[in-house]
Design a binder for these strands. Structure first.
Lengths: 190, 190
DNA sequence: TTTTTCATTGAATATATGTTCAATATATCA
DNA sequence: TGATATATTGAACATATATTCAATGAAAAA
């Protein structure tokens, strides 16, 4: 293993362990020593790779922002198909890569109080709920999505997804819901 | 105002402000000085009424446990009616009493890591998801509730509710969803 | 009015935790 | 091999925060 590889591995190792702990315990509750200890490395090494706890969190939020672009790449004919594909991808991905679930929650967590203000603003810069409300509007026009305030519908959908991710992280054994159950929040029932 | 009243008022004042801050910022992120400052009282006074931060949090969880008994009092003929009544009550109550929403989240928060273990166990002692799964099973028998793993369905419902509460606390202006939208997660679509 | 009780304060203390840094071990390269 | 660069350590430092406590003021009781 070259020096460069070694460096990158350590950085990733730290980053993913930090993600795991930040999501489970929260930003403040996660101590630098928690991260170092659970990786069996010294705190000094951690600071060698990341200049501060805040910086480490910032790296993660930046990574998360990248990931949030992926839903925008989903191609769909019917609006409801957009949400269906998103959920399907998400649920499938979760089983293989637990960090996806964690990252989803980190981005929600980063928008809350208690997070350094500059990071919080960054996390708030992509508003999934507003973006989806436009797709919901399309669906309302052709009667495939329920009538009602588009923001509230979008909110209900994303709240539900977040709640599910939240629970999955804390209680991994509880089975995921069926995609169609969550879609029924949006779907016009005829 | 008698001494007794004064005492009770202060205790409640501290308790509710603590609830507000614990829910918004989390347990560790909420500093004793935050609570004292936002009430314009000294830290000493706070410790005069509550022997520790942990004790204060415990009081809140105990209060929350009381509140969690109320869904069990709901009377229903059709199983779906149980969930409908619950949501209706909850959404109506929220507009008048923001602390209900906060309390709902506190109880979820108290079940996570980062909370003192004894309190965490107490919070985990009432399992809303398991309780509801039995009602869901009734509904499945008479075809008013979707087929599928009852725990997963119950989970989807409660995750959704939690996600909604979460968002309401952080972004109070976003409108609440319609009760029926959330019920559609459970309802058999014929 | 005098005494006693309790609400209230805020500086002092103890502890926890983020961060620094000088020293050491190990790998890379000449 | 020897020289240089990098990975790694952990004790030391600075700061933040929970908690204590002796002192003060105000209300209740006598």
């Amino acid at each position: 293993m070259t020096r460069k590889e070694q460096k990158e591995n350590r950085q990733k190792q730290i980053l993913f362990k930090a993600l795991e702990l930040f999501v489970i315990k929260g930003y403040m509750e996660t101590k630098i020593t928690d991260i170092a200890n659970s990786l069996n490395i010294s705190v000094g090494l951690l600071f060698h790779y990341y200049e501060s706890k805040e910086q480490l969190y910032l790296e993660l939020v930046k990574l998360g922002l990248e990931g949030m672009k992926s839903p925008q790449k989903i191609k769909y004919k019917e609006p409801i198909e957009y949400f269906e594909k998103f959920l399907k991808n998400l649920f499938e991905a979760i089983d293989k890569e637990p960090w996806i679930c964690q990252m989803f929650l980190l981005m929600a967590q980063a928008q809350k109080q208690g997070i350094p203000e500059n990071i919080r603003e960054l996390a708030l810069s992509v508003n999934q709920i507003e973006l989806s409300s436009k797709i919901i509007e399309e669906g309302q026009r052709n009667r495939t999505i329920k009538k009602g305030d588009t923001l509230a519908l979008s909110n209900a959908f994303w709240c539900s997804v977040q709640g599910i991710m939240e629970r999955k992280v804390n209680f991994p054994k509880i089975p995921l819901p069926e995609v169609s159950w969550i879609l029924d929040i949006l779907r016009e029932i005829s």
